[in-house]
């Protein structure tokens, strides 16, 4: 068990483009909890964009190449066995590339051809394991150890855990999920629930854990995205949640942006706050609100946390 834990204590870290921009608070709080839990994060050197949804739409194999380059550097140039990506999009794409390179000979050839021309080693399936920030805390620390390090905790804060689309779908790129006890579920994910429960949150029964926020069309079909986000916000409020905990910069920014848009365009005001799960976990570990970048969120949860006496 401890060997298994050791494997995840020092991992390659792939923040991705969003965490350098709108998702900076996610980046900050992820690094902060890593430090507080004595975990090592070594940023992937000279990384590139994973291709996101957009490059996949133009050509799926280009996206496979872009993601494979990140894994190639982490594995071949930095000698890591594990790469951690906190962004659902990056995580999904690295996993998808892994699946394609395992199962599609054509993809293998295209990636090899571009990698050779680009002048770096071709990534081969199985060289590295991609994990999400949730897996990271689960595997490197675990609930038992985490509980010992909680200082102050979340004091019964009512939380709706929102996982989004890309963390669980499609199922074929996540062969380690749905494998019985201890593994993550694709239908009703619970890793975030588990960690925040240990941190002292009161998780509400939230039916839209894996609903879509419309992130793919947040700017190209904004009304659709606003309607989808409004569903999520209203369902969270109806479930009694004070905050929605997120694990993806696109979902997070989408919820924040369309909460404002729903108010301005449709006259529908919701009060539920939107917070990264890493920010909640950080505050439960005794880090200050500033240390986890709480004031950097568009959704202003500062007063709520103060009132609750959290961090």
């Amino acid at each position: 068990m401890s060997d298994e834990r050791e494997k995840y204590k020092n991992v390659a870290y792939y923040p991705g483009c969003a965490l350098e921009g709108t998702g900076h608070a996610y980046n900050k709080s992820t690094k902060a909890i890593g430090k507080a839990l004595d975990l090592g994060l070594e940023e992937v050197k000279n990384w590139n964009c994973c291709g996101a949804m957009e490059v996949k739409n133009i050509d799926p194999k280009l996206q496979t190449y872009l993601s494979s380059r990140v894994m190639s550097i982490a594995s071949n140039e930095m000698d890591h066995d594990v790469v951690m990506a906190p962004c659902n999009g990056c995580y999904h794409n690295l996993k998808k590339a892994e699946y394609e390179l395992e199962n599609d000979q054509e993809a293998v050839e295209v990636v090899d051809q571009i990698s050779n021309k680009a002048g770096h080693e071709t990534y081969k399936a199985g060289e590295i394991e991609t994990i999400h920030a949730l897996d990271w805390i689960k595997k490197a620390v675990g609930e038992e150890e985490l509980e010992k390090k909680i200082k102050g905790g979340l004091k019964g804060l009512k939380v709706a855990n929102y996982y989004g689309c890309m963390y669980t779908r499609p199922r074929n790129i996540y062969p380690e999920k749905d494998q019985g006890e201890g593994s993550e579920s694709t239908l009703k994910p619970h890793y975030m629930d588990d960690l925040l429960a240990v941190a002292g949150a009161d998780n509400v029964e939230f039916p839209l854990k894996t609903a879509c926020c419309g992130g793919a069309h947040t700017l190209s079909d904004s009304d659709t995205s606003t309607k989808l986000v409004l569903n999520i916000l209203m369902a969270a409020e109806a479930s009694g949640a004070e905050v929605i905990a997120t694990e993806c910069p696109t979902c997070h920014t989408g919820l924040e942006m369309h909460q404002i848009r729903a108010e301005k365009m449709f006259g529908k005001k919701t009060n539920v706050k939107i917070v990264y799960f890493t920010q909640l976990l950080g505050m439960a570990l005794g880090l200050s609100k500033r240390k986890v970048g709480l004031q950097e969120n568009i959704s202003d949860s500062y007063a709520l946390m103060k009132e609750k006496g959290i961090a």
Partner: peptide, 24 residues
Amino acid sequence: KSPSTLFDTVFTDQVMETGLIEES
């Protein structure tokens, strides 16, 4: 070209050009 395709194109061009996305 749909708004979605236009967005994908702007995005992909930028990734191909610089390797990264600068959101603004």
